[in-house]
């Protein structure tokens, strides 16, 4: 067998430098040309056609994606827009307010005003009426206080108290209660029928109800202001679900809780309340 096939090297593979430079020129010309043609089509021809009735300059700005060059449809409904469900907005300032809050300053407030009902350590003196606050999410306490102050959430008891507080004070007392240690509980899954246990942990795709734990569970992977539920008293939870369902309480932004509560049956509301009332983690 001869050592290898002694066939002549081809023109493109040939070794004189001319073919080398031609490679570089032709590939560069093709790529630059191709990009240029694509840009012309993408920025001039197609935009001019799809937004006919507009001058080419605006069409190009839109193709570039310059904000402000877009035509925004008229919005007559905006004039009669309803008031926002809650005035609390999760901006950087709110975040900074909460993270800079001092639990120490909150202790004094908790002792002389909030402690009477919610307990100085956050364990409510009358859990059916006044929610437990120990270990509750700081953001949730802050939002409810702000809503009591602005009247987005009605309560004869809480309105005067909240109106006397400044935003910093609300953040401080929220930080104080968030730092308190709640009872060591776990969900009362054995005390409720299975369906509710599944609803709380996995949600119900049929009614489009996400799992309660996705917002109210320890991971709090839902909106900022969703409160932790475990350890709250069953009657209080049931009452809040009822208030959301009947729309008497409507400080949930974008009707998140109202839509869900409206679809829960009273039995489910009752069972969920027991589930989150919880049982001592020991047994």
């Amino acid at each position: 067998m001869s050592e290898t096939s002694p066939l002549t090297p081809g023109p493109i593979g040939s070794d004189h430098p001319a073919s080398d430079r031609s490679w570089r020129i032709w590939t560069s010309v093709f790529i630059a040309g191709f990009v240029l043609v694509s840009l012309v089509i993408g920025f001039v021809i197609l935009p001019w056609r799809s937004e006919s009735g507009v001058d080419p300059f605006t069409a190009i700005c839109r193709a570039l994606g310059l904000p402000g060059s877009e035509k925004i449809p008229p919005d007559p409904g905006a004039a009669k827009a309803s008031a926002p469900a809650s005035n609390v907005t999760w901006t950087i300032e709110t975040n900074r307010l909460l993270s800079n809050a001092s639990a120490a300053k909150g202790t004094a407030l908790a002792k002389d005003t909030c402690g009477a009902c919610h307990g100085e350590d956050g364990k409510s003196t009358d859990p059916e009426q006044f929610p437990n606050l120990a270990g509750q999410s700081q953001a949730a306490i802050f939002k409810e206080l702000a809503d009591f102050q602005s009247g987005d959430r009605k309560s004869d008891i809480m309105a005067p108290i909240a109106q006397a507080l400044t935003r910093e004070q609300m953040a401080d007392v929220a930080a104080y209660y968030a730092a308190q240690k709640p009872d060591d509980l776990r969900a009362a899954d054995s005390a409720v029928m299975l369906k509710v246990d599944l609803l709380a942990r996995e949600g119900d795709p049929k009614r489009g109800i996400p799992s309660c734990d996705s917002c109210h569970g320890p991971s709090r992977s839902g909106p900022e202001d969703a409160p932790l539920l475990l350890g709250q008293s069953a009657p209080y939870i049931e009452k809040q679900i009822g208030n959301f369902g009947s729309q008497t309480r409507h400080n949930d932004v974008f009707e998140r809780m109202r839509t869900i509560a409206h679809q829960l049956t009273p039995e489910e509301a009752h069972a969920l309340a027991i589930y989150y009332h919880g049982m001592p983690a020991s047994n």
């Binding site: 067998m1 050592e3 290898t4 096939s5 002694p6 066939l7 002549t8």
Partner: peptide, 29 residues
């Protein structure tokens, strides 16, 4: 033949072709 004549002289064996005695590639020209 494949015009072996003048090309053989300037032909150097590239590293890619199978070394002689390579059992796996018994393809003859």
């Amino acid at each position: 033949n494949f015009g072996l004549g003048e090309f053989m002289s300037n032909f150097d064996r590239s590293s890619d072709s199978p070394p002689p005695g390579d059992t796996l590639d018994p393809i003859t020209d």
